[in-house]
């Protein structure tokens, strides 16, 4: 699975591909949308609608890079919403000029994000849960141990197990390149 063929897979009703696309782009698109509507709850709702529309019209998807498509769809959703409200938005024109998002990410980087996601997804249930709590949610070992009612030592071992698995699974990636691009990626949002 690569980023480029996500649309093809979604077109064929692949639910996992749709979930990956969603998880990869949801928050960046919400941040992007807030610039237009200036309201987080509203932005959440609009971006959710964008994804629901994509799924409903998946038969019409063409194989292409998702990023430009998604940002364009999000922008249109926001602008339609603003027009619909018939509210004169002072910065309206300024926003329409902003097209830089299409250059933000290179294909290669996102392909790797998909690989990393898939690799994490393959971890055993408890191991995956502990790894995500530690790495993604930033919880301390002690907090995780308390939440799950297990020993701190088990938490650490599970994290080690996850890292070992990921290291083997992702050994073919050009790791340093990925890191540098990812840093760029995370700075943009």
């Amino acid at each position: 699975m690569t980023e480029k063929n996500l649309f093809e897979l979604i077109k064929a009703s692949d639910e996992k591909a749709f979930e990956i696309l969603f998880r990869m782009y949801y928050e960046p698109l919400v941040s992007f949308c807030i610039k237009y509507v200036n309201d987080r709850d509203l932005a959440n709702g609009l971006i959710q609608e964008v994804f629901v529309n994509i799924w409903e019209n998946r038969k019409n998807l063409r194989p292409q890079q998702p990023s430009p498509y998604l940002y364009r769809a999000a922008k249109n959703k926001c602008l339609n919403y603003i027009r619909h409200l018939n509210v004169k938005h002072e910065h309206h024109k300024e926003f329409e000029l902003e097209e830089s998002f299409e250059e933000i990410i290179t294909d290669e980087t996102n392909d790797k994000l998909v690989l990393i996601y898939n690799s994490i997804d393959k971890l055993p249930h408890q191991c995956k849960r502990i790894f995500i709590m530690s790495r993604m949610h930033g919880l301390k070992h002690k907090e995780i141990a308390e939440e799950l009612g297990i020993a701190i030592k088990t938490v650490k071992n599970q994290i080690g197990k996850a890292l070992k698995h990921l290291k083997t699974d992702l050994s073919h990636l050009d790791i340093l390149l990925v890191i540098s691009i990812l840093k760029l990626f995370s700075n943009k949002f």
């Binding site: 990869m24 949801y26 928050e27 959710q48 790894f131 890191i179 995370s186 949002f189």
Partner: peptide, 24 residues
Amino acid sequence: EIWLKTGNLSHFYSADTNYAWEIV
């Protein structure tokens, strides 16, 4: 490197993303 790399996927698993995914 793996540790750093996976940290950049945080938003994939954030509470907001999880919640929104349930809805979508």
